[in-house]
Design a protein around this nucleic acid. Sequence first.
DNA 1: CTTCATGCAAAACATTTGCAGCTGG
DNA 2: CCAGCTGCAAATGTTTTGCATGAAG
Lengths: 153, 153
Amino acid sequence: MKQDHGPEVEARLDQMLKRLRARNFRVTPQRLAVLRILAGSEGHPTVEMIYETVRTDFPTTSLATIYKTVSLLKEMGEVLELGFADGSNRYDGSKPFPHPHVICTQCKKIIDPDLSSLRDLTKEVMEETGFRIVTHRLDFFGVCPECRNKAES
Amino acid sequence: MKQDHGPEVEARLDQMLKRLRARNFRVTPQRLAVLRILAGSEGHPTVEMIYETVRTDFPTTSLATIYKTVSLLKEMGEVLELGFADGSNRYDGSKPFPHPHVICTQCKKIIDPDLSSLRDLTKEVMEETGFRIVTHRLDFFGVCPECRNKAES
DNA sequence: CTTCATGCAAAACATTTGCAGCTGG
DNA sequence: CCAGCTGCAAATGTTTTGCATGAAG
C-alpha cells in the first residue's frame, strides 16, 4: 500500500473527483496527486509541501501547476485556505468548511479541536451588528504538549 | 481642530508615546503622524491608507518608513496586525489585543462587536488539546447593512 | 481531434533591506 | 554631537500570468 489513510479519506477523494468531473475539469495525474494529499490533509500542508510530495511521483511537476490546482479547488469550495499574517498559507481539503484550528507556534502543527461551547456565535454577531454573516475564521495560537516537553529540558 | 477624535484616543496616543520613549525610540514627525492614525484606528487602516494620510502632512514620507514604524509597533505589541488570505493587512492600534472582528466583504469595513457569549473558549481549548494557548484570532465575514441596502436596488 | 492542463520563464506585487545623509534629544 | 531615523532604490520571496507544447476525454 502506498499510504495508510482511512476509508473516509477515500470517500472525500471520490467526492472531489466527482465534483471536478461534474464541472468538466480534467483529472490529470498531477491533479490526482494533489487531490490525494488534500483529501487526507491532517497536516494542513503548505503549497511547498504539496509540491515536494507530488514531485516524488511526478518529478517534472511545476510549482505553477500546484498553485493552479489549489486555486481551482479553492474557487470550487473544495479546499479551505488558511492564510496567516506572515504570508504563509496552509490548506485543508478534508474539512473545507469553517472550523476552529489550534496552531503550535513552534512546530507549526495544526489540529482541529472539538469545541462544544462554540455554537451560534454567528447568530449573536448577526443580531448585534446587522451583518449577514457568510463565513468565519477562528484560530488559537500556542505551544503543543510535545514542544512544551522539549522546552523544559 | 484637525480631527474629531475623543479623549480616549488622546490617552491611547500618549500611552504609545510614553512606551516609545521608555524604550529610547525617537518620536519623529512621521512617526507621530502614524501613531495618531493608529491610536484612533476605527477604520483599521492598511499600510497604504496610513501612507496616503501621512503624505498629506509630510509629502516626502516614504512607504518604507511607514512599514518600519508599523513593524516596530507590532514588535512592541502596540498594534494588532490583521493579515488576510489575499495578502492584505489591516492594523488596529486602539485595541492591540485579541478581539473578534466583523468584516464586510464588499466595502471592506471592519468593526469590533461585543460578544457576551464569547468567554473562556481559550480555557476549553487548553483542556481539550493540552496546548498552552497564547493568543487567538476570530473573524466573521459577511455583508454590512449599508452594502445590503445598496444591493437590493 | 479539440480543448484544457502543464511547465517554463517572466511578471507582478507587497514587503524588506542596505546605505548615505539627516535630525531628534 | 551621534545613535537612530528617513528616503531612495534595489533585493526579496511568493504567487500569478502568458504562451508553446502535451495529453485527457
